[in-house]
Amino acid sequence: MQHQNLLVIMEENKNSHELDAFVKKYVKEIHTESPSKDFTASLMSKIVVEHQKSIFTTSALISKKGWFLILLLVLALIFIPFESPEKSLINFPELDLSFFDKIQLPSFSVSNTVLYAVFFFGLMFMAQVVFLKNHFNKRFK
């Protein structure tokens, strides 16, 4: 029985080799087609347009590094005065925040389930943005 199976497998292997050779032989004979004669010329004119576009591409006014520095600065401005009240860098004017107590918000409660749902929706949404961006960039690597 096993011998029989082995024979079948050998036969299949032989056939697939034969088929491989068959396809290789005949597909290679096919003539390739060429694009139209003015292809390179018309493409290059588009490339020139593309090149000019790239010269005028906008870049962010504040780079990622810049934003990071700004964030650090803001955090420093907020926290340093609390750390050392005597040597405060900037004297913030005293703000009267008592008006918050006067605002009467209608009381409503949200169940934990909804909170979790919203939280995870947000999380997944952010994850997708990163994932899709990578996915499309990968094509050009």
Binding site: T32, S34, P35, F39
Partner: peptide
């Protein structure tokens, strides 16, 4: 160099 390959 590659237009024929891509076009085919």
């Amino acid at each position: 160099a590659y237009k024929k390959m891509v076009f085919s």
